[in-house]
């Protein structure tokens, strides 16, 4: 198997960059995110970046089409986005984040309708995953059966070992990527397959979807929500939260429709014209968010809406994170 020496990393990244826009994990003063390589330099720390990759496939704000208002009403003047998105390579995705992209794929590419803008971006993207030899304290991907040393959905997998990385193409797209990087890859030295990293958090999702399916009216929800601030931190940082709103930007006689990330934590999310709201308080909203991730998505698509990335553990200001909720769900009896 191809071997990438630590010191050959810049050359490897350059080989990737020659094939499209290259996004790499970088560390900013305020947190980590993905940025275009060479504008910022690669910085790898345990666990995923604070900001997930989802914005590369589902931008936080995205134009859908332009319209012009004429005497008899609006006409469509231009449809966005372009059919072919620019080629991009996302480097350094952790196995949890690769799994999260697979969840987004289910929603946007499966389930009846195909979302063309999402599909264009996904098809133009290659995922280069980085296996985890070390877990962050907030990591709990194991709870969902993920292997921190594997990333089945990635085009290329890098496994960090002493002195370098084992490099494996996992798809045709991955092979194509590596073909351009042959010059910087060596042959695999004899190395032992590493042991999986140790995790601090003891969490499991085993049996949770079935248990939650009978817990809609459980008293657990009566207290759980109370400390929730009703902000969008968990949803906006979550790599699998995909909900969006569609709105108009009105510029006099012309404008455009756009979609933008939305949060099920906001009251307006389900508020209907006329004032009725089927999820009127934080209780219903919090319950729906966790049931959606841990029960509804497994029911509908056979995948959890959580990959154990730990971002909500890191940033929920009141510690109402999904690991804490999983633990509570495991503890309580199902009696109502």
């Amino acid at each position: 198997m191809p071997w990438l020496k630590d010191e050959a990393m810049p050359a490897f990244l350059a080989a990737l960059q020659s094939q499209g826009r290259l996004w790499v994990p970088v560390e900013e003063e305020w947190g980590s995110c993905l940025a275009v390589w060479e504008e910022k330099s690669l910085r790898l720390t345990p666990g995923p970046t604070l900001l997930a990759a989802k914005g590369l496939f589902l931008p936080q704000t995205e134009k859908l089409f332009h319209y012009r208002v004429e005497a008899e009403g609006a006409v469509i003047s231009e449809s966005e986005p372009p059919a072919a998105a620019a080629r991009q390579i996302v480097f350094g995705l952790r196995p949890c984040d690769v799994a999260a992209v697979a969840v987004m794929d289910k929603v946007f590419l499966d389930g009846g309708y195909v979302d063309c803008a999402y599909r264009a971006r996904r098809e133009a993207s290659a995922l280069v995953a980085l296996a985890c030899r070390e877990a962050a304290p907030t990591c709990f991907c194991r709870a969902f059966g993920l292997d921190p040393l594997a990333a089945p959905g990635a085009d290329v997998l890098l496994l960090p070992l002493e002195g370098g990385y084992l490099v494996r193409a996992q798809t045709a797209k991955g092979e194509e990527l590596l073909a351009q990087a042959q010059g910087v890859l060596a042959q695999e030295p004899a190395l032992d397959w590493p042991a999986p990293p140790a995790f601090l958090l003891e969490v499991t999702a085993a049996g949770v979807p079935a248990k939650l399916a009978a817990m809609f009216d459980h008293p657990l929800w009566d207290n759980l929500y109370q400390k929730c601030l009703g902000c969008g931190i968990c949803t906006y940082l979550c790599p699998t939260c995909y909900c969006f709103d569609v709105q108009s930007a009105d510029r006099g006689t012309e404008g455009y429709r756009y979609r933008c990330w939305d949060s099920c934590m906001f009251p307006e999310y389900t508020l209907m014209a006329g004032g009725h709201n089927p999820r009127p308080t934080k209780k219903e909203r919090v319950r729906n968010r966790f049931l959606h991730k841990l029960c509804y998505l497994p029911e509908r698509f056979g995948v959890f809406g959580c990959v154990g990335c730990g971002r909500c553990l890191l940033k929920c200001p009141v510690n109402l994170d999904i690991a804490a909720v999983l633990k509570k769900v495991q503890e309580v009896g199902t009696h109502v």
Partner: peptide
């Protein structure tokens, strides 16, 4: 918002 099962808000359970 979408009518396509994507935007998320009209779910009743799954």
């Amino acid at each position: 918002k979408c009518g396509l099962g994507k935007c998320g808000r009209c779910n009743l359970g799954s």
